[in-house]
Design a protein around this nucleic acid. Sequence first.
DNA 1: GGAAGTACCCACTTTGAAGTAAGGTACTGG
DNA 2: CCAGTACCTTACTTCAAAGTGGGTACTTCC
Lengths: 127, 127
Amino acid sequence: MEVSWQPGMKMDVNAPMCPSRGVLEHVTSRWGVLILIALRERSYRFSELRRHVGGVSEKMLAQTLQTLERDGFVLRDAQPVIPPRVDYSLTELGEEAAAQVEALGRWTERRTEQVLKNRERYDEARP
Amino acid sequence: MEVSWQPGMKMDVNAPMCPSRGVLEHVTSRWGVLILIALRERSYRFSELRRHVGGVSEKMLAQTLQTLERDGFVLRDAQPVIPPRVDYSLTELGEEAAAQVEALGRWTERRTEQVLKNRERYDEARP
DNA sequence: GGAAGTACCCACTTTGAAGTAAGGTACTGG
DNA sequence: CCAGTACCTTACTTCAAAGTGGGTACTTCC
């Protein structure tokens, strides 16, 4: 196991200090997943996105969009008009990530009913 | 947006109260991802897994394995021998999830170098 | 004239995820 | 006989993620 990451070192999510861990945590973050999935369908404005992704606070939406933008997954297009208009869309890199994340999200929706049954069985097997 | 989830309702990760959210959070959790990826390759014993997944504490490993087992992703096989021997493997459902998660993990490893560059560009563009 | 929409930022507080440390049992190897 | 391995559990602590509530600056709608 590597103690620190050096340039040119092979990326390995199992290494505690590997930067790939951070990247993975960004794309699999609570709101990151939902935002990526939403933006795959089309570009969204801030408040539109907030209404689409149920339950996000403004703060978390802004914050998550920023980290996704910094990583190069999301493109932020702010028009200098009044009222402010900012459009968010996926970059090519973001589209690649979002495709995988959406697959996982859709799979989860399909299998959740089964998981719920599994939990019941598990719980009644031990009081 | 639905306020509460009722049986027979369509699963939707965008609905705040939909149980699919919780399931998605389990498979995309910090240690959940790494454990699923590891178990895809072969079955592991507890301490083996702990050594393989760099940086997990015993507590988090035990806890995460339990929630994955409860959801029906992981199979726990405890042999009543001394010293204790417990093998963890994927169920069919877990294998489906793990396959997607591994794809995402491998993709992240491949693209992390690019993301690191993106972050540099982003940071130097604003002081 | 007041309310609501737009896209945020900031400070503060709360929550819950995670880390640390210790305990427990039944052995084996030195 | 003490250390170590194996597989956890429990209690305590820490710290980052997330929620809350406020402010901004300007416009359109009623």
